[in-house]
Design a protein around this nucleic acid. Structure first.
Length: 307
DNA sequence: CGCATTTGACCGGCGC
DNA sequence: GCGCCGGTCAAATGCG
């Protein structure tokens, strides 16, 4: 894991980010694993997270699990509780690239300009708007230079829904069948035209209940990218900072209905138990409104502190 | 009408 | 060099 480049876990990203989920991980995720999750949650800081002691400990614990025997993470408590839709953080890994070597630590949600720190790989291709420049097609990468990826952050959640609500809006731009997996992989990108964050969603071939979500890049905007409007409260904005499993943040009235399946939009009073070891019998994922004190009050991104 | 999703095609990287 | 595979594009389609 962290021995790969001999760098400090959580502080030095690999220049070549190939990764996977270590032992016990799904075969479908076929990259090599780099768990940079450090006990001091420094990696979270890299992504703009700031765990307060209690939860830093939580992260530390499961990071440790990953490194030792890759035991199932049972991230009980506030973080996973937010994924009431029968989702729980199972495992988490972070990787990144030299294109953003720790610089992401400076990223603040209140500083959109930092977004440019990343996109060596994503040259502002205003996709969808049609039109890649003839001479510089977006998909063409520099020859002789391996594709440089933005910092990535992946986690596994146990969820019935593939696309977990995370406070940001995503547009699906592709779907591919995954080798050795009956489940397809979906590709999303942030709907914010200036934001190059992408995410991949796929299900574990071993445990269909587990959704593997991979985020790449960082949001260069703090609110939710709601073209049609509405502000989202800063908590949700933060949630999208890394778009972690703490997501499931839904604010009635401001959240786009499109993104929110009926089953999700209706908050449920109960919380699904967090037990990643066995499937949840819950037929329908439910969501809840995480309270600021229960979730967001504990994990505060740098840019959000003092707000 | 505008936006999101679907889906087949295309392209580049990588392993053999 | 070839084939496989992952990732992305973009036209078509659907939906609110």
């Amino acid at each position: 894991m962290e021995d790969k480049e001999g760098g400090k876990p959580g502080t030095a990203f690999t220049s070549e980010s190939s990764w996977t989920f270590s032992g016990g991980g799904p075969d479908s995720v076929s990259s090599s694993v780099n768990y940079f999750f450090d006990k001091d949650s420094s990696i979270l800081s890299e992504f703009g997270w700031d765990l307060q002691p209690d939860h830093a400990d939580d992260f530390g614990r499961f990071a440790e699990l990953d490194r030792t025997d890759s035991a199932r993470l049972e991230l009980a408590g506030n973080l996973s509780a937010s994924q009431s839709c029968a989702a729980a953080v199972v495992r988490c890994s972070v990787s990144g690239t030299a294109s953003n070597p720790g610089g992401s630590a400076d990223v603040s949600t209140s500083n959109p300009s930092v977004s440019s720190s990343s996109s060596e790989d994503l040259p502002e291709k205003s996709t969808g708007s049609g039109g890649k420049p003839p001479e510089i097609p977006s998909k063409v990468r520099k020859k002789g230079q391996k594709q440089i990826r933005q910092p990535r952050f992946a986690f596994m959640t146990k969820s019935e829904v593939d696309h977990l609500e995370d406070g940001y809006r995503w547009r699906k731009y592709g779907q591919k069948a995954v080798k050795n997996s009956p489940f397809p992989r979906s590709y999303y990108r942030c709907t914010n035209s200036k934001c190059t964050v992408k995410k991949r969603v796929e299900r574990s071939s071993e445990d269909p209940a587990i959704v593997i979500t991979t985020y790449e890049g960082q949001h260069c905007h703090h609110g939710i990218a709601f073209p049609r409007g509405g502000l989202i409260c800063h908590e949700a904005a933060f949630a999208g900072q890394l778009t972690p499993p703490v997501s499931q943040i839904y604010h009635p009235g401001v959240q786009s209905h499109r993104q929110m399946p009926p089953s999700i939009t209706q908050s449920q009073p109960h919380q699904a138990p967090v037990d990643v070891g066995e499937p949840h019998p819950e037929p329908e994922p439910t969501s809840q409104l995480p309270t600021d004190e229960g979730l967001l009050g504990d994990i505060v991104p740098p840019g959000m502190r003092g707000r």
